[in-house]
């Protein structure tokens, strides 16, 4: 009985005895299963499509599983795009983005949360009101601004603006507000500098939020394809998403089995990343959901 109480959600075990509820629950399970199939089907299609021969990919009606495994598609696909270079570019972009998107908002959040600051409200407003301004509305002036700063075609055009992230300040500040102020007072009396307070205390204590933001930054960097293709003018500097979009997805002379092989290859790293950090990601989603 106690176990049943612990396990209950909207329905209790008792509800299951009713026929109408059981039928509805059964329908729900079937619907969820169908949903899962719908979600997984395109991924299987991409993976299996990447192993089909050129003849088989054009068969109508299309088949799902390949008859023979054509591993050669991968070798062929990798010839069209320099995935290694694009991958390294992406990593480099990510490293800089993560550094600035965590350090600058981290320092600001610590200052607003735990330190003496004049005009705290005005400063907070200066940061937070940018959340209300949709980024797309200043997309064009942003581009022109980077142009006049001479930052086009350079990774600095991504790294430095990554620090101007009000959402990160919001999350970090609300977390740091929860840390007891006396902890830092004690450290200051013991002679710890503010930098030491930040790097040795606030940062380790806020590790859950920092790791969540690291993950968000990774997803954003890995996914972004349009903006990099505007800002960077040479393909040698493109991150993986932009390069794959322009050289594979929109390529007209490539057959789909080869396209699928490259797509499968670029889906693997984020999947691995996700599986490793699954717990933190789910935690992060809850965090951002509650805070809005």
């Amino acid at each position: 009985m106690s176990k049943a109480i612990r396990e209950r959600s909207i329905m209790s075990s008792f509800d299951m005895n009713k026929k109408s509820v059981m039928v509805a629950y059964g329908i729900m399970l079937v619907a969820l299963l169908a949903l899962a199939v719908t979600l997984l089907y395109p991924f299987g299609m991409t993976l299996f499509g990447s192993l089909k021969s050129k003849q088989e990919i054009f068969v109508f009606p299309p088949t799902y599983f390949p008859r023979h495994l054509e591993w050669g598609n991968y070798a062929l696909g990798f010839k069209y795009v320099n995935l290694t270079r694009a991958f390294l570019n992406t990593l480099l972009l990510y490293a800089g983005n993560a550094f600035f998107a965590l350090l600058i908002p981290g320092l600001a959040a610590f200052s607003l949360s735990q330190m003496k600051v004049p005009w705290r409200k005005t400063a907070t407003l200066f940061f937070m009101s940018t959340l209300l301004i949709p980024s797309a509305t200043y997309l064009i002036p942003n581009f022109l601004n980077l142009q006049s700063l001479g930052m086009l075609n350079s990774y600095w055009a991504f790294w430095l603006p990554a620090g101007a992230n009000a959402f990160n300040i919001l999350l970090l500040k609300s977390f740091m507000d929860g840390i007891n102020k006396e902890l830092f007072e004690a450290a200051r009396i013991d002679g710890a500098s503010e930098l030491r307070c930040f790097f040795r205390m606030a940062l380790p204590l806020s590790l859950p939020v920092f790791s969540t933001l690291l993950i968000f930054t990774f997803t954003a960097t890995w996914n972004d394809w349009y903006w990099p293709s505007l800002v960077l003018s040479v393909k040698e500097k493109y991150p993986i998403s932009s390069l794959v979009y322009y050289d594979i997805v929109t390529a007209t002379m490539l057959t789909w089995n080869v396209k699928f092989s490259v797509l499968t290859a670029i889906m693997v790293p984020p999947l691995v990343f996700f599986i490793i950090f699954q717990k933190n990601i789910m935690h992060g989603l809850n965090l951002s959901g509650v805070k809005g």
Binding site: F43, W222, S242, I248, I266, M267
Partner: peptide, 8 residues
């Protein structure tokens, strides 16, 4: 997974 893969 990257949005460009989903577009394809």
């Amino acid at each position: 997974v990257p949005a460009v893969a989903l577009y394809a």
